[in-house]
Design a protein around this nucleic acid. Structure first.
Length: 564
RNA sequence: GCGCCUGUAGCUCAGGGGAUAGAGCGCCGGCCUCCGGAGCCGGGUGCACAGGUUCGAUUCCUGUCAGGCGCACCA
């Protein structure tokens, strides 16, 4: 692992290097036969008694060396370089593990690092100068945002933030499906409501949009522009209504997402792909590469060339390209824009689309591994222990706005990312609204507010935060202090893991643990006391904790309040 | 029928091949002359099932069973 600057990684790499040296020395001395260096790990054992770090190197060598693993481990120990910082003792354990026991104060190095780096503490450099695009939500602009969209928003935004923290250059994008059949239906639905509101006959078509919000939008139009479309040319009437309604709907979506704390860099129109000829251009490329053929009057993409079960229509018998055709053009455009990596956040109901989209990218000559699709499972809302049903058809569903009104932005964001994407999410509205220790988001925020309160107390006593350079951190010897510092030291690695796995829930769990350790410490020890030296050391520990809580919450889009 | 996701504590969920599998909630019992009790401490049962790979499998592979979601000239 490279590009991680934390103290844990530093220690891990130091031990790894020492073991590699030991192996080389042992071979050199003839104590071991020449062997290939296996891909061994230096890990943090679950059990405290197994030391601070453990290596499995010796257990990977018996075949090559034709020696027992424990014997190999002993030999490695004899050849370990001397004078490794913080190292207290090394031992062979179990089937051949090499366990490293460190002076417990080694973790305190994380404290001044966090204090010094502030908002940058936890940043890692997994990549250098690489660009990634994260596309998420991309809900139809014909309605309101529901729970699935909301989860996508929280997940996508958090993944983007984590990737940014991990060294990627990130662009957040929303794909507006403002073309195709649904827009046609949208127009017919709007027209029907328009007629109805003005006393004429009108019926929302089968498969149209029946929601109350559509009625509201048409009413807004009438309030502003009256009934002048009643006798207009039908094409003009539909176009006008659609344009008006799209603008209003997209405006509403932007506003809701902004209130949710999500800011996009690009809003990309599907229609623009048709208008600029990019859909045709893409189809032409596929044709030139021999991946298209005609059957039953339609044009098909040979997805089966790429391990997909069946081929897919890209141009219908009536000559109109399918959504899939536009989507291929869209993804091609992403790569054309120079992104090194493209990530989509999709609902589970779209997972069947993944293989053929990857196939299409491969067909166009792009690396399909550069396209990652995060599939998130569906959300179930609970209130009073009962499932809250969502139905777009009947227009009865909880919108993002309603959710924020009910539980607040922070709770909503936290709840959506606290489970892994591929886990079904049971969202307990009652719990999210609770202002008590039962609610994990308050639990974490409270830890931050508590620290801020200590600092206010400090100021009231006319005292100041110490300069890190003049503080003796080794006064921190209590178990609660070292356990807390140990977790603060883990932050950069947690960020790296979350980034690699595209897994914000790791950060949610991590920050909850840090909060718990802070509370445990706080309950047993006082920060501000007559003992100025010790107070200063603890103040620095508190400041480092505050930095980590704030940065981690920031990655989740959750605020870190000074007071609650 | 085929494909994808998921089966871990009473409930909701974590667990990048390692040595005795964790957290929150719920339940029971404790802790405030003290920087914020929105807090802390203690108490316990579990990897769906069957094979395989491996020195070692909750983790990887195969199969079975169960739940969710897909399998349109919809998006």
């Amino acid at each position: 692992m490279s590009g991680i600057s934390g103290v844990v990684e530093k220690m891990r790499e130091g031990l790894r290097g020492a073991l590699a040296d030991a192996l080389a020395a042992a071979v050199e001395a003839g104590q071991l036969p020449p062997v290939d260096m296996p891909d061994f790990v230096v890990e943090v054992p679950r059990e405290r008694e197994h030391g601070d770090f453990a290596a499995n190197l010796a257990m990977l060598l018996p075949k090559q060396a034709r020696m027992a693993p424990r014997k190999i481990a002993e030999t490695l120990l004899e050849n370990l370089p001397r004078g490794l910082r913080w190292l207290e003792r090394v031992e062979v354990a179990g089937p051949g593990f090499i366990n490293f026991h460190l002076d417990p104060r080694w973790v305190l190095e994380a404290v001044p690092l966090a204090v010094r780096q502030q908002a940058d503490y936890g940043r890692v450099r997994l990549v250098d100068g690489k660009r990634v695009q994260v596309e998420f939500v991309s809900a139809n602009p014909t309605g309101l945002l529901h729970m699935g969209n909301a989860r996508g928003a929280a997940l996508g935004d958090s993944i983007a933030a984590i990737l940014d923290f991990a060294g990627w250059q990130v662009s957040r994008e929303y794909y507006i499906n403002d073309a195709g059949n649904q827009i046609k239906n949208f127009g017919l639905s709007l027209e029907a409501r328009y007629f109805q509101l003005l006393g004429r006959e009108g019926e929302v078509p089968e498969g149209g949009y029946h929601g109350q919000d559509i009625v509201d939008t048409v009413r807004h139009y009438i309030e502003q522009h009256g009934d002048k479309l009643l006798d207009a040319d039908r094409r003009a009437r539909l176009d006008t209504l659609v344009q008006y309604a799209l603008a209003e709907k997209i405006g509403g979506i932007k506003k809701a997402l902004a209130e949710f704390g999500v800011q996009y860099d690009v809003w990309f129109s599907e229609q623009s792909l048709h208008d600029t000829g990019k859909v045709d251009e893409t189809l032409q490329q596929l044709r030139e590469r021999g991946r298209l053929y005609e059957r039953d009057g339609a044009l098909w993409f040979k997805a089966s060339d790429f391990g997909v079960e069946k081929d897919e229509v890209v141009v219908r018998k009536n000559g109109i390209p399918t959504y899939f055709a536009a989507d291929i053009a869209y993804h091609r455009d992403k790569f054309e824009r120079g992104f090194d990596r493209v990530i989509n956040i999709w609902g589970a109901d779209h997972h069947g689309h993944v293989p053929r989209m990857k196939g299409a990218m491969a067909a166009l000559g792009y690396d399909s591994d550069a396209l990652d699709v995060v599939i998130m499972q569906l959300v179930r809302l609970f209130r009073g222990g009962e499932i809250v049903r969502m139905s777009k058809r009947t227009g009865q569903f909880v919108t993002l706005e309603e959710l924020m009104e009910e539980v607040g932005r922070d709770a909503a964001r936290y709840f959506f990312v606290m489970r892994s994407a591929d886990s079904h999410l049971d969202f307990d509205l009652d719990l999210a609204r609770t202002q008590s220790n039962d609610n994990p988001v308050y639990y974490v925020q409270y830890a931050h507010a508590r620290i801020c309160s200590i600092f206010r107390q400090l100021a009231e006593q006319g005292r100041q935060m110490p300069d890190p350079a003049g503080v003796n951190l080794e006064l921190l010897r209590e178990e609660a202090e070292l356990a807390l510092a140990r977790h603060l030291a883990d932050f950069p690695e947690e960020v790296a893991l979350a980034a690699r796995q595209l897994a914000p829930h790791r950060i949610a769990r991590y920050v909850h643990e840090v909060a718990g350790l802070l509370h445990s410490f706080y309950n047993v020890h006082r920060v501000i006391t007559e003992d100025v030296e010790l107070s200063n050391a603890r103040l620095l520990l508190m400041e480092a904790t505050r930095v980590v809580l704030r940065n981690a919450l920031g990655l989740l889009g959750v605020s870190a309040p000074d007071k609650m």
